[in-house]
């Protein structure tokens, strides 16, 4: 009897060890894979990525030494525009769904649709944007078409993130506001949103990373050409004006795709690597900023 138990215990211990070992091996494999990828991308692109002339220079069509200045600017400009459009929309939708929507079928269907949308392949979003914005609205390959396509791509994710952030605010906070004679709106704006803000900001910045690296949705909407930008130009209808939202704008991710698929420049590999490294560093920075800002905002809001 006693030896039975002993045997059982030692078997359980052995199984536990084996399971732990397997899990650790899996994690190590994933970690090494990702770390190797990051190190490889940054290492092979480092020379270019930290070269100011590469970062600000204009791309070349046929000879070597081209830069990614316009692409870098386009990526950020597009990102900002996308965020300006998608954050308020997502915020509104999420607040409605969490705080106001009656718990009925329609609400349930809306929530399901948003979930489905968030797993839509981005090339499908891009082709939809092409049909709607580029062709139907006649905006052509332009920043604004790209921004709207990215908005469609981004909204489901953002709504989910904000929804979760709002839902994680304890009901007691909501009750406290209402019991003090505040309206639902005042409670949401002044109590729930500030409390959920750290999570919301983190979510926004993380989604920014995703948007920043998106290529497929932009190929047929923002276009694949990067006209040289003239930062002194204030004519908003000129194609060289950087702020013109109706000009085509190739981003970093699209640039990588393009030079790899149809590029003819001799230093193709170096430029592609450098661009990838810049992209990677930006996304990494977004993540770090997201954590930092999230923590800071959290601390500030609870007045610690």
């Amino acid at each position: 009897m006693a030896s039975d138990i002993k045997a059982q215990v030692s078997r359980a211990k052995r199984e536990d060890k084996i399971a732990t070992g397997i899990l650790m091996a899996i994690v190590a494999f994933i970690f090494i894979l990702l770390a190797a990828l990051i190190v490889y991308i940054i290492a092979s692109g480092a020379q270019k990525a930290f070269d100011p002339s590469f970062l600000t220079g204009k791309p070349e069509q046929f000879k070597e030494g081209g830069g990614i200045g316009p692409e870098l600017f386009n990526s950020f400009y597009l990102l900002v525009l996308t965020m300006i459009i998608s954050v308020p929309l997502s915020l509104g939708a999420a607040i409605y769904l969490v705080e106001y929507a009656p718990g009925n079928r329609v609400t349930h269907i809306i929530k399901t649709v948003i979930e489905v949308l968030s797993s839509l392949p981005s090339i499908v979003v891009g082709l939809f944007g092409f049909l709607l914005f580029v062709i139907y609205f006649g905006w052509g390959f332009s920043i604004i078409s790209g921004a709207f396509a990215l908005t469609i791509f981004n909204i489901p994710l953002l709504v989910r993130v904000i929804q979760q952030a709002l839902e994680s605010v304890p009901t007691t906070q909501r009750d406290a506001g209402l019991a003090l004679g505040l309206t639902r709106w005042e409670t949401t704006i002044h109590i729930l949103l500030p409390t959920a803000m750290p999570a919301i900001i983190t979510g926004i910045i993380l989604s920014a990373g995703r948007v920043f690296g998106e290529a497929a949705a932009l190929i047929y909407t923002a276009g694949q050409s990067a006209p040289m930008l003239d930062f002194t130009c204030l004519d908003f209808s000129s194609p060289t004006c950087p702020w013109n939202i109706f000009r085509p704008a190739e981003t970093l991710a699209v640039h990588i795709w393009k030079i790899n698929s149809e590029g003819v420049v001799p230093d193709l590999a170096a430029i592609s690597n450098g661009t990838a490294a810049v992209l990677m560093i930006c996304v990494l920075l977004f993540n770090l900023i997201a954590r930092f800002v999230g923590k800071r905002v959290g601390k500030k809001l609870v007045a610690e």
């Binding site: 304890p170 007691t172 906070q173 009750d175 406290a176 506001g177 209402l178 019991a179 003090l180 004679g181 505040l182 309206t183 109590i191 500030p194 409390t195 809001l301 609870v302 007045a303």
Partner: peptide
């Protein structure tokens, strides 16, 4: 409701101060 709840206050089971000073 909003006027009423000012004159009839409520305190809850779990202390729920706002995340403010």
């Amino acid at each position: 409701l909003y006027e009423l709840r000012q004159s009839i206050g409520m305190v809850f089971q779990i202390p729920n101060p706002f995340r403010k000073s």
